[in-house]
Amino acid sequence: MTLPSLRESLEAHGLMAKKSFGQHFLLDLNITRKIVRLGGPFDGDVVIEVGPGPGGLTRALLETEASKIVAVEMDGRFIELLGELNSVYGERFEVIEGDAMKVNEMQALVDRSLPPLAHIVSNLPYNVGTPLLIKWLTGPWQPLSMTLMFQLEVALRVVAPVGDNDYGRLSVIAQVLCDCEKLMDLPARAFTPPPKVDSAVVALKPKAERPEKAIIKNLEKVTAAAFGQRRKMLRASLKPLGGEALLEKAGITPTERAEQVSPQEFLRLASLI
């Protein structure tokens, strides 16, 4: 069976993007195939896609050698449209209706005889992109890799080096836990409807050695304190967590500010709290 084009599918089902869901569709299969190619390979693995919408990335993923694609979609309008892919791909494709932000663990949403490890590939809705990333970075369920599209300003924060204007809490948490790389930029005109800002795709690959759960919690705490008052010296912003004594123990100058401290130094602070 030959699938209709994405635009034809949307028209046939009378569907449009919902502003309240932060939806902007990527309908150009040449672009979605490039994203999948840069994020892969996924040979023999399971790939979870959050927020597939009409299925632009989904179709590109199904063209790979991945063993299974699981699409998690909260907008019930798209379930029937996505289900049409089963006519071509059969059991290699599964749609789950649910909200990835409202479950306790990602695994609870996708635990349908799947292996414990899977990749995540997603064109994330702008209004939940950062919270979802933090959830996947710090939560109990760990993906094999993440290939995620964000609005450009968020993507730049993920990969920003220490001292950069975009360097902040998200940079630290992402870079402590993953190797991060910006793969490609996407102009607003690539989307339907076009958003007001450009986008970018980021690859995050979890590091082989992961800090203990308690240290990750401390990392969230110390970065929130430091970057919540980023104009202050660390001896002031971190005073509730130990202040100068903590900083000296970690070998960090108390008069430095948050943007001057590397991810590994923040990890050292988190391990000492």
Rank of each mutant, 00 (worst) to 15 (best):
L3V: 05
L3K: 04
E8L: 10
E8V: 13
L10A: 01
K18P: 08
S20H: 14
F21D: 00
L27W: 08
D28G: 01
D28I: 06
N30D: 15
T32E: 01
K34T: 11
V36F: 02
G40W: 06
E49A: 09
E49N: 13
V50S: 00
G51L: 03
P52Y: 04
G53Q: 13
A60Q: 10
E63Y: 08
A66S: 07
A66P: 06
S67K: 15
V70E: 12
D75K: 06
G76C: 12
E80H: 12
G83Y: 10
L85R: 02
E91T: 13
R92Q: 12
G98Y: 11
M101L: 15
M101W: 01
E105S: 15
A108V: 07
L109T: 02
P115I: 14
H119T: 10
Y126R: 10
V128P: 02
T130V: 12
I134H: 13
K135S: 10
T138S: 15
L144M: 01
F150M: 12
Q151I: 09
R157K: 10
R157W: 04
V158P: 03
P161N: 07
Y167M: 04
G168P: 04
L170F: 04
L170P: 03
V176W: 11
C180I: 06
K182M: 14
A190Q: 08
P193F: 02
P194S: 14
A200T: 02
V202F: 00
V202K: 01
A214P: 02
I216E: 10
E220L: 09
V222F: 09
V222T: 10
A224Q: 12
A225M: 00
Q229K: 10
Q229G: 06
R235L: 06
S237G: 08
K239C: 07
G242A: 04
L247I: 01
R257Y: 06
R257P: 06
A258V: 04
Q260W: 00
P263H: 10
Q264F: 00
Q264V: 05
L267G: 01
L267P: 02
R268V: 08
L269G: 03
A270T: 13
L272F: 11
L272V: 08
